[in-house]
Structure formats: structure tokens, C-alpha cells
Design a protein around this nucleic acid. Structure first.
Lengths: 147, 147
DNA sequence: CTATTTAAGACTATTATAGTCCTGTATTAG
DNA sequence: CTAATACAGGACTATAATAGTCTTAAATAG
């Protein structure tokens, strides 16, 4: 099973790109190219972040997208939830109006605790952290490759 | 997003049923009825646990299924993994043979840590725990309902 | 022998995700 | 003012994953 969806992964990569080139305005086309994402799809994705106020958009020639906040202030949790909503271990399905077993469901509390664990873990990671880590590791790579 | 799938939920309920009526052999039909699960579908599900040695099956008249292990020895993790495989936050998709960004992927370690957290949480819960919790909470209910 | 019940695989239906396309509107360079 | 650029948004299609059904075979209790 897979928790993080494709478009969420795309979103993260795009935002890391924006965070790395802070100040600059990058077009969807440019981002898509550098991050291996279908352009039209990426546009859709970025729109969600614009609505959430995480990304600014600039129409017209020389337009594009830029981060609306400091990279240190955008958490992975926000990004993931923007794309796929609140992560749930299990919203109980049976029963039209909520799970009929709900009162004595032995798992509810456990699922909730796991959800909280993941959420708080994600809330502790910011775009800035990701940018830093990428820089760190690519420094090694470049050194290695230079002869 | 939803981590636990429908059939996994069915599986858990079925196993809790078997754990609660330890020793007894219950037919798929009986379990399905008491747990609101489509019978044929449940059969498919139980087969997986038979193969894993978690459930014993008994063919023929008066046959059915029974737990092959002590309820305290079957963990939620085993159950979930039997149904949906190892839980992954994100197996990176791009690239035929693994993610090309892998070397400097800023998230890999984070995803792994989260996966471990969830897995160890689930490994700490057994069918016995679930049965106990159900008994606990239904005691209240019965009391409440008896006028 | 016959009812019952699991085993197993093929098949279908439904839903979720991924991806495309088209039309419109704002912006800006010239 | 105009043409080119680039986002906005909705409709549409494709693909894949999940859920669920059906059919035939094999085992076993009585």
C-alpha cells in the first residue's frame, strides 16, 4: 500500500524547486521540465497551492509561480494535506451515517494515535529542511563526479 | 487519503470474530453474516490467512475456519500486511529501475522513519487486545441498555 | 451418496487516480 | 493597441486499483 500519491510527490518536488529558487518566478513549464512532471498536470497541482495561499501566481508574459511564504514556514503536512486531504488510517465505511460499530470499535483509538504520529512527524519538516538536504547530498555528488 | 482498505477491515473483523470464539469452527457464511461482509469476498480474504498459517480451514459439512494461533500471538501488523503488503509511505515511481533522484532524495529517510513508527505501533497490538477491548466496551453498552 | 463447505481462478463492476484538452482571462513587451 | 505569454478552470478520457461475483472442483461429515 502506498500512502503518498503521485500528484503529492509532484507537488513536493515543485515546491522544493520554488523554495530553492526563492524570489524568482518560475513558469509551470520550467518547473515541469526540471522535475519530470507533465506540465498541464502540474498546473492543476499548483493551482491548489495558490488557493491555499502557499504559492503566488503571476499571469502573463514572464509570469509564473513563486513561493508566497518563507520555505521554513511551509510544512510537509500542509503540502500533503493540500493534495490529498487529511490522512486517515481508516474512516469506517459500513453504515450510511458513520460506522454502526463505532461505539465499541476496538481500533478507533489506535488508528487515531497513528494518524497523529504521522501528522506530527510531517509537521516537523519544512520546505527549507528539504532544500537543505538536497543541497547537502548534491554537494557530495558533484565532488564525486568531478574527476 | 485512506491507509487501511476495505478488505483489510473485513479481515480484521473476521479474525476478531474467530479470536473471540476460540476453539470453535465458524463457516465463512456465519462470519460474514455476523460481520456484515459479502460471503464470497470473505472467503477470498480468509484464504490468504490460511496460506499464511494464521487460520486453519476445515472443508466439508460442519467445516469452516478457526484461528491457528493464540490470539495474543497474531499482531495487527501481520493482518494488515497479509492483506495489503508492507505499508509504504512512498515508493518513488519515476525511473524504471528505482527512483533516479534516489541518491539525493530529501524525503526517503523521513518516509522510512514514519513507516517504522506505524509498523511498530501495529506490531504492538494483538487480536487478544482487540477482543478484550470489544468485550470491555460492550459491557457498558449492555448495562446501559438494560433499562 | 449427498449435503455442506472450502479452494481457486476467471470474470465483471465500480471507483480513484492520472493525465489531456479546450476555452477564457490577465499581464506585459513592444 | 496588439500579440504573445502564461495562469484559471472545467470538461473530458485513460488507466489502474479495488471490490465484488460466479463457476467449477475437491474434501468431508453423516
Amino acid at each position: 500500500m502506498e500512502v503518498i500519491r503521485r500528484n503529492t510527490e509532484y507537488a513536493i518536488r515543485a515546491l522544493v524547486h520554488l523554495a530553492a529558487n526563492r524570489e524568482a518566478v518560475a513558469s509551470a513549464w520550467e518547473i515541469a521540465g526540471s522535475q519530470d512532471v507533465p506540465v498541464e498536470f502540474l498546473q492543476k497541482i499548483l493551482q491548489k497551492f495558490v488557493k491555499r495561499g502557499i504559492v503566488d501566481s503571476h499571469r502573463g508574459a514572464q509570469g509564473g509561480f513563486s513561493l508566497a511564504k518563507e520555505p521554513g514556514e511551509v510544512t510537509l503536512l500542509e503540502v500533503v494535506e493540500t493534495m490529498q486531504g487529511k490522512l486517515a488510517m481508516n474512516r469506517c465505511f459500513l453504515g450510511r451515517d458513520g460506522c454502526p460499530r463505532s461505539p465499541n470499535c476496538p481500533l478507533k483509538q489506535n488508528w487515531l494515535r497513528m494518524e497523529e504520529q504521522i501528522a506530527s512527524h510531517m509537521a516537523g519538516i519544512t520546505l527549507q529542511d528539504l532544500v537543505d538536504q538536497v543541497r547537502e547530498s548534491s554537494r557530495f555528488e558533484v565532488r564525486g563526479e568531478r574527476q
